[in-house]
């Protein structure tokens, strides 16, 4: 089964909103604006970094929603609501790794990108073993992040949809 979303992901490298909109317009009947733009969830307890990440994702023309902590994200999360999750590793309360564990049962196909201020090799291999798309160390290069988001979205594209 191939959903509308998955069809779109094949063309995701086209970056600008204008082009996107043109695409919408071309396929206007089939594709709604909301559904076409991938939506990324950001979880980080550091406000300045969270805000910076949101701004960067916006300039990439992604839609995104930011959460201060894993609990808040989980409360807002429903299956397929987000196309990708970028989470900080170290957070008060529920850590990035714990969040990943929970999502393994709640939304196993949601691609997860870890960002961390520490080069904690143990946490890194644990995250990657558990299926994380990437484990990026702060400070993060914008191009690198973009490549990994695209990779995550492509991977998500191939995930089975069970609706």
């Amino acid at each position: 089964m191939i959903t509308r979303t998955r069809l779109w992901y094949g063309f995701v490298k086209i970056r600008t909103q204008q082009i996107l909109k043109r695409c919408d317009y071309v396929r206007g009947v089939k594709v709604s604006n909301l559904a076409l733009v991938p939506k990324i969830a950001v979880v980080d307890d550091d406000a300045s970094l969270r805000d910076a990440l949101v701004e960067l994702l916006e300039v990439f023309d992604f839609k995104c929603q930011a959460f201060e902590g894993a609990e808040l994200f989980l409360a807002a999360h429903t299956k397929n609501r987000f196309d990708c999750l970028i989470t900080d590793l170290n957070m008060k309360g529920c850590s990035g790794l714990q969040l990943q564990q929970k999502l393994a049962t709640l939304d196993p196909r949601l691609p997860v990108i870890f960002i961390s201020a520490q080069s904690d090799s143990e946490a890194r291999s644990k995250a990657l073993r558990s299926g994380a798309v990437a484990f990026l160390s702060k400070p993060i290069n914008d191009d690198v992040l973009y490549r990994h988001i695209i990779a995550a979205l492509s991977r998500g594209m191939s995930r089975p949809v069970d609706d």
Binding site: S48, L49, A52, L56, V59, A117, D142
Partner: peptide, 12 residues
């Protein structure tokens, strides 16, 4: 943390 935010905001 702040250094990452600085870099990210600068890039954006």
């Amino acid at each position: 943390q702040p250094l990452s935010a600085i870099l990210m905001n600068a890039q954006t």
